[in-house]
Design a protein around this nucleic acid. Sequence first.
DNA 1: TCAATGCATTTGTCGGAGTAAATGCGCCGA
DNA 2: TCGGCGCATTTACTCCGACAAATGCATTGA
Lengths: 257, 257
Amino acid sequence: MAPSDRTEDKPRRRTGNPARIHGTIAHDLGVAIVSGQYQPGETLPNEIDFSERLKVSRSAYREAVRILSAKGLVESRPKTGTRVTQATRWNLLDPDVLAWYFASEPDPKLIDGLFELRMIIEPAAAALAAERREPHHLTVMREALMNMEKHTLTTEAGQIADRAFHDAVLDASCNMPLRSLASTIGAGVRWTTVYKARKDELPRDPMPDHWRVFDAIAAGGPEAARSAMEDLVGAALRDTARALRRSQKRPGGDDSG
Amino acid sequence: MAPSDRTEDKPRRRTGNPARIHGTIAHDLGVAIVSGQYQPGETLPNEIDFSERLKVSRSAYREAVRILSAKGLVESRPKTGTRVTQATRWNLLDPDVLAWYFASEPDPKLIDGLFELRMIIEPAAAALAAERREPHHLTVMREALMNMEKHTLTTEAGQIADRAFHDAVLDASCNMPLRSLASTIGAGVRWTTVYKARKDELPRDPMPDHWRVFDAIAAGGPEAARSAMEDLVGAALRDTARALRRSQKRPGGDDSG
DNA sequence: TCAATGCATTTGTCGGAGTAAATGCGCCGA
DNA sequence: TCGGCGCATTTACTCCGACAAATGCATTGA
């Protein structure tokens, strides 16, 4: 009955403080909404009933609704109630919303969209980074790549290092909106490694592609950096598309759906 | 001392319902934070004192903080209090955060960043749109452009039509994350027209550029659409950059700063 | 038939009380 | 003298009950 029985990764800040109730409720409701359990246009039960059913106070529930409202998932008005907004108004670039999508198996269209976005953003960001990178950007990138080599993508540490590298490239672009896309890109990167891990094999060694991007950025060659990043993302795109098709052949996979 | 005396556009949903207190507080605090009135790392006064000073209940204040927290602007923990997070963690792509930036005169680096983003995103989106557009996308685009012609960019209606056109292009790309960037792109578009209006002259007729984009998308030519959109955004970029340099020559401009 | 108005429902706001957590400090022991 | 441990304090977190405001709906009147 509780929509969150399946998701083990409750909201938990990196500082290790425990999840608060309003965060937990927002997480659970958010997952329920993006997974279609509550359809756009649908009206949620009123505050009193719903908070009672969820076994939380009205205050905590209201704060959870405020969070969802801030991310564009719901809209509440007196008398009308709190209703789920149209999916086009959801703030898909929000790190939490994206995480809620990935809490359950997300729509393949979203995966495709993320890769298309990566294919648009990352080469351009790499080109900018080649022009503007500071020494400390290169230091971060080099360290991330060395960690990738040391741990490999089969480990959590290696995947974190992978995302750290892509984040560093966006950082080095010295463009505030681009940097804000880091979490979105990171979700795409994470998804790549998820599929790679699922296959229990790495279809290719990702390191040469990564080092070529790094070298081009370090050398200050925008077009070389762009081209290298296109190759990198393109390879990841092909790997993921292949894995995605493979997983689609065995339908179902989620008993609750 | 109220930080919002200057901003007339209080949060007011398109449906015309009045601003709620928590929304107003979130708006005011958000503007104060992104404008640097509260520095990152700084701790806000505790709930009781601050809510009393703001003349609102603790519930309403807490809901406002919850909104800001959902957008990554603050982080609150027991004993530590509520503190402003590092600017790199702010969710810049959030429509509200972006609006709060533009409530006061935003950092020119942000304007530049937005135009760079447009220059990256919009041509690629136009190319995708040329491949995937449905008839109703073209209908929306055509109507937007006709409204642009009828009202011109000197009017509010014309500017809305301008943003509607750019939104429609993103829509036609049939890519969920790209569509979510509509508000971000829209902020950039709006800023262009703001500067154009400020100069009380339109440096060039924007319509031919727009129609060329439309024609290319309607004809299904991805590269033509990309190229046309590059020209369009490039022209806007040059106009805005010129106006920005001009306005920087007369420093100050805002008595409260 | 239409318009104005009262009513019921739902969210919004308020004030207070008690709980849990995290930090800093003092105490205690080695 | 130094290090570890427990306690007190501060703060956000949670809960509760009540009232206000807004809005859709039905009712009533012209």
